[in-house]
């Protein structure tokens, strides 16, 4: 029986490519290297995509073994397979499997430009309330609930209480969980945090407009995927800042002071102590927005 079947080359190429994509997505999720590419709250979608591609692979593989007589004979002439069409897929798969998985290098922050200018304060509000947001590195949230009134109010009061905590604390510890909360709050209302001590981990950024004693300490904030990565953080001052190379990871401890950057009043951290550390396992910050 088997000799009545012949391989359909086009469907065979397609099924191999689909298998490749499905395997790539599965491996990426399994090894957790997916966090270098997208915000973990989308991982479920990626898994669903991998399953769907696998089903599509089965459908294609089935028809690659299809009997070539009958209704499909037209495929053999009329138009040949254009192998060039598969080139983009093959190149993508080669890059995916052959190159190492790595997080964005800090060198790209130069192109993106750090978010250091003075940030606009919310207008028409009686009390300082930043954009309602907070981070949770691995939280899976449901976007569809974001509009829910009661939920929003609850989140609002949660953020409120976190900000109260910040204002009372003598020492602000910047962690992955409160990163964007702190950078937003302190950059919008620097005068309220003058004199407070702060500890933070981040990579060194140098900008042309910085003085010799200044450097930026930042991390990439990823909303959806690393294509929308924005470096976020603070300007720091240290007398031997020239020794820091761009991209060095530092753990710093310092005090918040007011300074000027491009004519705007911005918070500047006077660094008292620092230690060089290796890049963290997961270098990105994933904000979860309520």
């Amino acid at each position: 029986m088997l000799r009545h079947f012949s391989l359909n080359a086009e469907a065979l190429y397609k099924s191999l490519i689909l298998l490749g994509f499905s395997a790539f997505l599965f491996l990426l999720v399994k090894s957790n290297n997916i966090i270098y590419y997208i915000n973990p709250r989308f991982v479920k979608l990626t898994e669903a995509a991998a399953v769907l591609i696998l089903l599509m692979f089965l459908a294609q593989a089935g028809s690659s073994l299809r009997r070539t007589s009958g209704a499909h004979s037209c495929r053999r002439y009329g138009h040949g397979i254009n192998k060039l069409t598969f080139l983009p897929f093959v190149i993508t798969l080669l890059m995916a499997f052959l190159l190492p998985n790595n997080a964005l290098d800090p060198s790209m922050a130069d192109n993106k430009g750090m978010n250091l200018g003075a940030r606009p304060a919310p207008s028409g509000r009686y009390s300082p309330t930043p954009a309602v947001q907070e981070n949770a590195p691995n939280a899976q949230t449901d976007n569809s609930n974001a509009n829910n009134q009661g939920y929003a109010a609850q989140a609002q009061s949660l953020v409120r209480s976190k900000i109260d905590e910040l204002q009372k604390a003598g020492l602000i510890k910047v962690t992955e969980d409160n990163f964007t909360l702190v950078t937003n709050e302190v950059n919008i209302y620097p005068e309220q945090y003058v004199g407070k001590e702060i500890t933070m981990l981040g990579f060194v950024l140098k900008e042309k407009k910085f003085s010799a004693e200044q450097f930026g300490l930042a991390r990439y904030v990823i909303t959806c995927c690393s294509a929308d990565a924005m470096p976020d953080g603070f300007i720091c001052e240290y007398k031997n800042a020239a020794h820091f190379k761009e991209g060095d990871w530092l753990n710093i401890r310092g005090t918040i002071q007011l300074g000027k950057y491009e004519g705007n009043t911005v918070p500047i951290i006077k660094v008292a102590a620092f230690s060089k550390v290796p890049a963290p396992q997961n270098p990105y910050i994933y904000p979860v927005y309520y």
Partner: peptide, 14 residues
């Protein structure tokens, strides 16, 4: 380049 390229594709695929 590779990280940004693959991340757009991974994000857009679903």
């Amino acid at each position: 380049f590779k990280t940004v390229f693959l991340s757009i594709i991974i994000e857009a695929l679903p």
